[in-house]
Amino acid sequence: MKNNPQHVIVIRRSKAQKAGHHGGSWKIAYADFMTAMMAFFLVMWLLSNSTPLQRQQIAEYFKSPLQVALAGGDKASLSDSVIPGGGPDPLKHEGEINKANRGKKTRDTGMKKLAKARDRLENLIKMDPRLSHFQSNLRLSLTEDGLLIQIIDSQERPMFKVGSKVLEPYLNDILHALVPVLNALPNHISLTGHTDSLPYATGDLGYSNWELSADRANALRRALISNGMAGDKFLRVIGTADTMSVENTQADNPINRRISILVLSQRKEQAILREDTLLQHLPEALSGENLPSQLHMTPVTSAQQHAQPVQQSETGMK
């Protein structure tokens, strides 16, 4: 038995191990989830506080952000132009950006010409003997609508006969001096007649300040044409009666009896033409017998047209 080798028995006992640590990977997943939720709620908030046009522009940007960036436009399809934005060339010689710049330069050039015309008229009023005596009756101002020339009355020197559309002789001299400067400008002209608030005895039912203001504006138009102005320079001739008094004056002040000659800026002229275009395209349902009764024109009798104005005022001045 001594010759028999002894076998060594090795007993291995394994200890129970706890679950291993997962590390920080769960934190990354959680952070991604929270970021996605924050982005989702931000998008929902933007959608609830934006207009349909803004949402369309945002969607268009995410569809083709590179195309919009290269074109320099608001979005790829926000135009009727064949070449939107700045066009295909880096220098932007084509496309809407250059077109907008050209339009702005044209408007600026037009306003500079009107400013030069104002300066020329101011010098003319001081130097020309036909105008120097009427400096208090002539007012010049450059506005966004254009160059405004106002010919105003005074108690001592009215521009028209009392309550009439007949021009005083010296008003013709003033117009004769103004016409060459106005003819040198390509701009159209708007004429507006104004009166004071002194009423006619017949009131608004007969010949009133409305007719007087319009008649005086048309009388001035004819006088300008007779002094050499082209007839196609006029874009509109209107009368406003006493509805537009000079600021900080009483409605019956003689200064409110005036004629406004507005040399229209390009922007104002386009606005007037657009307004006229809209009126021309009114639905046919509003024409003829379908018009509301208050829009039908009331015929004016010949007696009303030739009625002599009778003033109801202490001074008799209109």
Results as ranks from 00 to 15, higher is better:
Gly95Leu: 02
Leu70Lys: 05
Ile149Val: 14
Ser260Ala: 12
Met229Gly: 09
Leu114Gly: 03
Leu273Tyr: 00
Met44Val: 05
Met127Ala: 10
Ile11Ser: 13
Thr195Pro: 06
Thr301Ser: 12
Met229Arg: 02
Gln280Tyr: 00
Val162Glu: 15
Glu144Gln: 14
Gly23Asp: 01
Met44Trp: 04
Ile152Thr: 08
Leu42Thr: 02
Asn3Thr: 08
Leu140Lys: 01
Leu198Cys: 07
Gln270Gly: 05
Pro180His: 01
Ser154Gln: 03
Gly146Thr: 06
Thr243Gly: 04
Pro65Phe: 00
Phe41Leu: 12
Thr35Val: 04
Gln17Asn: 07
Leu140Asn: 02
Leu182Val: 01
Lys18Gly: 03
Arg102Glu: 09
Ser141Glu: 02
Ala16Tyr: 13
Ile97Leu: 14
Glu94Thr: 10
Ser136Phe: 02
Val263Arg: 09
His22Gly: 13
Val68Ala: 06
Ala19Arg: 15
Lys116Val: 02
Ala303Arg: 15
Ala214Leu: 14
Ser265Phe: 11
Arg221Asp: 02
Asn172Gln: 08
Leu205Met: 15
Glu284His: 12
Gly87Pro: 10
Lys165Val: 12
Leu185Pro: 08
Tyr200Lys: 14
Met34Arg: 08
Lys27Asn: 06
Ile58Phe: 13
Thr298Pro: 00
Ser164Met: 01
Arg13Val: 13
Phe234Trp: 09
Ala117Gln: 04
